[in-house]
Nucleic acid binder design. Structure first.
Lengths: 340, 340
DNA sequence: GACTGGCACTCTGTTGTGACGAGTGCCAGA
DNA sequence: TCTGGCACTCGTCACAACAGAGTGCCAGTC
């Protein structure tokens, strides 16, 4: 059974009012606030149909209606008009991000900005190493058997790791290896690196094989393990807005989920090019986030995507506004990264 | 007016019971649960005195007594016996921290461990740069007018910053500067670095003066600004334990305070050697944390302190246990750092 | 002088009742 | 297909009554 235009209009009105007031909305209030051109009785009939179809529901018999997850979904997919950012907001984004000193700073500023603009919890993934390219690899001898390996990615990320050598190696040899490693890897995408690293080992002379093998394994470790795991989080205090009415009484499960990097990565890390993804309530596969929605997107210099960012809030959130903000911030961050 | 031993014993019993049950404790329950050897009427008299002295108070006329901040303070200073960690806990600490890959990982593991053991919010400050020494400084030419400056501290911290040169500089010159910079700074404490950096500029030949000046200012920026600001946080979900009875109804102010790095640094960054600091309720000068207590201490390899760590929870917390855990974790982290 | 038993008193939290109002569902009529 | 009207359902609020916990105080005892 399909819904005619007016029913959709009623659904939109319900979502908008509920998001604004946070109270179940009744038929009478609806006709008063929106010029629907019909009486409340008609609206009531429409509501009955919408309820039957699973888009809205009644908390109690004598209360107004509240959108269900499916209702929000329909709203987001078909009913919401894009809400352009105000010039003030645009300026705020630019000004806030402009002064960033380094990558760490960019990420921190971004996450705070996002939390502030959307008034929700913001999450930003650091540029993923596997999607970056190597800019430079530095080998710093600490002693004859210890080397600090520093990898600098083109996105500005820097990873370092200590490497214990099996045999003492003079620092001249190390410098030579440093040159070779950079010749081979500089400019390469990290995802392509593992086979190249292997050839480095294969090509090295026998007397340096042991040291190079050790370096190679440390390098691979740096590239693969934990490589996408870094995240920044801000705005947890925003969860308390709406005074526990959202999140059915306890922030507990939500706070717990926010502590799990794995979960957060799943939420914002799985990004497809130039899509803004909206997950509403149950659509998050995580039990703890049944009453939360996540809006996420990818960012990166130009068209490539190096990481994800997004916000998390109650299902009852201002989707059009949030989506617009998340997109805008992602775009600005991308531009910022492209400049370096 | 001084309190005799029994009154102190009564105060201790009140604190312990209240911490355990989270409910105001009455005179009758007290004599039943603790073998005080006197009747409830006597305890009531003692309680009246304790209340007059400001160590306990009644939420309402007909409720039991609850410790005040001053009561907790007295308890911590004079009444609490140190609670040694269980062997299981010690083993947990060792096992959990043993597998750390690098500094980032150490800090992350530490903060999670601390949150888990104390069941509270944990904060760990990254080893402060100003308390560390320079291990190595690397200059990576990106182009003839851009250099990536990477500083590696002996605590394992790595800071990097991009430096825009005012004049194109050939990479041979850069390599030469790299050598000079390291000769001058390697092994020096960062706090002592600024004057040394200045001499570097003064000593450099005129044709390189501009480039060196630029490098120097970037270097100083790296050393000074933001240098102590990095923090890791975990266990926010633990705030919801005790179901909002602690924190007088809203987590809001507490969550807000936890978002402010400046505030957190103030709480756990101001550490004196080998002291565990306990701040109870009002003793935190931050309004938002009126109903919270903070237990913090310093950590570092050997006797030196390179950073602070601690936990934050409701004033109604298990002080002896928390203090013991915070100390133990700090000691283990110190040992771990000493190994590198 | 210190402790105890007992009693009156004060509150809080709970329970129950009734009035009120918001909102619905449904039906007959336009 | 829409509308006006009406009966019905519940949740909320205000108020009163009540039970229970805990205290303060006093007179009596060791």
């Amino acid at each position: 059974m399909s819904l005619d235009d007016r029913k959709l209009e009623v659904l939109r009105a319900i979502v908008e009012d509920y998001v604004a007031t946070q109270e179940p909305v009744g038929s009478k209030a609806l006709v008063e606030r929106h010029r629907l051109g019909v009486s409340s009785a008609t609206v009531r009939n429409d509501m009955a149909v919408l309820e039957e179809e699973g888009y809205i529901r009644q908390p109690h018999t004598s209360a107004g209606r509240v959108p269900t997850d499916a209702g929000y979904r329909l709203f987001v997919d078909r009913l919401s008009r894009v809400k352009p950012l105000s010039p003030a907001e645009r300026r705020a984004i630019e000004r806030f991000l402009a002064g960033a000193l380094d990558l760490d700073d960019v990420v921190h500023r971004t996450v705070r900005l996002l939390a502030q603009l959307t008034r929700q919890v913001a999450v930003v993934q650091y540029p993923s190493l596997t999607r970056s390219a190597v800019r430079h690899i530095e080998l710093v001898p600490i002693s004859t058997t210890r080397i600090m390996l520093v990898m600098i990615a083109d996105t500005g990320r820097v990873e370092q790791r200590l490497c214990e050598l099996p045999v003492p190696t003079p620092s001249d040899d190390i410098m030579d290896m440093r040159r070779k490693v950079n010749e081979k890897l500089a400019g390469q995408r990290l995802a392509d690196a593992p086979p190249l690293v292997q050839t480095l080992v294969d090509e090295s002379p026998a007397d340096r094989r042991a040291t190079m093998t050790c370096l190679a394994s440390t390098l691979l470790e740096t590239l693969v393990e934990r490589s996408d795991a870094r995240l920044a989080l801000a705005g947890t205090a925003n969860l308390t807005r709406g005074g526990l009415l959202d999140f059915q009484g306890t922030l507990r499960p939500v706070l717990e989920a926010l502590e799990e990097e794995v979960i957060l990565l799943k939420l914002i890390g799985e990004v497809e090019p130039s899509t803004t993804r909206v997950r509403i309530g149950d659509e998050n596969e995580i039990d703890n986030l049944r009453s939360a929605s996540v809006v996420s997107t990818g960012y990166g210099p130009g068209a490539t995507i190096v990481g994800g960012l997004g916000v998390l809030g109650p299902t009852r959130m201002d989707y059009p506004g949030t989506i617009a903000t998340v997109r805008a911030v992602a775009r600005y961050v991308g531009e910022l990264l492209a400049q370096n």
